[in-house]
């Protein structure tokens, strides 16, 4: 196959469908594991586009029902925020989630 014929799943980190299928075959069968193994979903869009597709691929490939494939952990900031802005919060009383 021509190299530019790739099917991209994670656009931020340039992860292909083939790579994701291979990872699932190797036993990475949760969204969090795929994320850590391939870095898919860890880029600038914070996994918005690729994660639903990755969960679908895991389900298709493993035969597990969709409800068993949990979404990865969602962390703040929900949108990328400049370091200098994050450094301006009033200190102390947050518990966090």
């Amino acid at each position: 196959m021509n190299t530019n014929q790739k099917t991209i799943i994670c656009f931020c980190e340039d992860i292909t469908k083939e790579e994701i299928l291979k990872a699932i075959e190797q036993g990475y069968t949760t969204a969090n594991e795929i994320k850590r193994h391939l870095r898919a979903g860890m880029g600038e869009c914070q996994g918005r586009g690729c994660m639903p597709q990755i969960m679908k691929l895991i389900s298709q490939k493993t035969g597990k029902p969709r409800e068993e494939i949990l979404p990865p952990t969602d962390r703040a900031p929900i949108k990328p925020v400049p370091l200098g802005v994050m450094g301006k919060i009033s200190k102390g009383n947050q518990k966090g989630v």
Binding site: Q46, R75, P77, P80, V81, P82, L83, G87, G96
Partner: peptide, 11 residues
Amino acid sequence: LGNVNILRHWG
């Protein structure tokens, strides 16, 4: 670096 974005933070 003040103008560089933070993508995630965690505990």
